[in-house]
Design a protein around this nucleic acid. Structure first.
Lengths: 141, 141
DNA sequence: TATTTTGATTAGCTAGGCTAACTAACTAAA
DNA sequence: TTTAGTTAGTTAGCCTAGCTAATCAAAATA
């Protein structure tokens, strides 16, 4: 299997996973896009909108949109940067941390069934693969 | 890392991949959802709309929608089942096969860059993981 | 000071999910 | 054989989450 075929396989597999988890998710829960933003804020602290957009590989208006959603739920706050008043520093709230943790530990993902059915070896392989990709995808952002 | 944490990691990683490939995709190309449907048709032959929805883990109206798009491009045809006239059998066309193959081998995925930068070992891990997941995700549909 | 550049937002597009409500076709029972 | 209920698929309308283009406000620069 060459590089492009692997890319295509990854792409298809990834979108199947995304579809699966979307199907099993209740209406009010944190979506993966929003979870991902909160992860970054937890890991790196306050960030500007454009920094977040860069890290998450989306355009700035898309990030504004995600931020709006998170703000509506009071999971983040916008603060105007003291030095450069154009910049909005996005900060996660207590409520945001709690929501993130709770979602992270939710048992009801429809993936959980698939994961549970894996052998130890399979699980290890997948965990390694996911870790590698997560890092590469962020670093190359 | 327990099962739920692995599920969450997988979910986040998958949606990052999906985001990446969406960003890099030209407007006219086959989208991942449509690619995935064509894959199933190539692998399993004609299928009803509800079978496809089951395999792809989406609701029936969603599949109707995807099928409509593929039909507009003449990548599939709908045939009425001889035995049960409620059933539409979805069949891939020559044009559909060609389009799928061409898309599958396209070089311009923004994932290709990430994949190219992987070591041999990393690539092997990821390939194995993707293959495992692709199978489990289809079988458990 | 006037102009350009930059960070963020707003408006409006698309894809691809969903539910609710419907039609058409089949099945079973009165 | 008609009637009631079920099943396959479609349509309509909503939502999230991407995108680009246009705008606004602040900062940097000529």
């Amino acid at each position: 299997m060459n590089e492009t075929e692997l890319s295509a396989l990854l792409d298809i597999t990834a979108s199947r996973i995304a579809r699966r988890t979307k199907a099993g998710r209740a209406r009010t829960e944190l979506t993966p896009a929003r979870m991902s933003v909160l992860s970054v804020l937890i890991q790196h602290g306050s960030k500007s909108v454009s920094d977040l957009a860069g890290i998450e590989s989306v355009r700035i208006p898309t990030m504004t949109n995600l931020i709006n959603g998170l703000e509506r739920s009071a999971y983040i706050v916008r603060r105007v940067d003291k030095v450069d008043k154009r910049v909005r520093l996005i900060q996660i709230t207590k409520k945001g941390r709690t929501a993130w943790r709770s979602q992270f530990h939710k048992r009801d993902s429809s993936l959980a069934g698939v994961v549970a059915a894996l052998t130890k070896t399979e699980r290890k392989t997948i965990q390694r693969a996911a870790a590698i990709l997560r890092d590469k995808l962020i670093i190359n952002a």
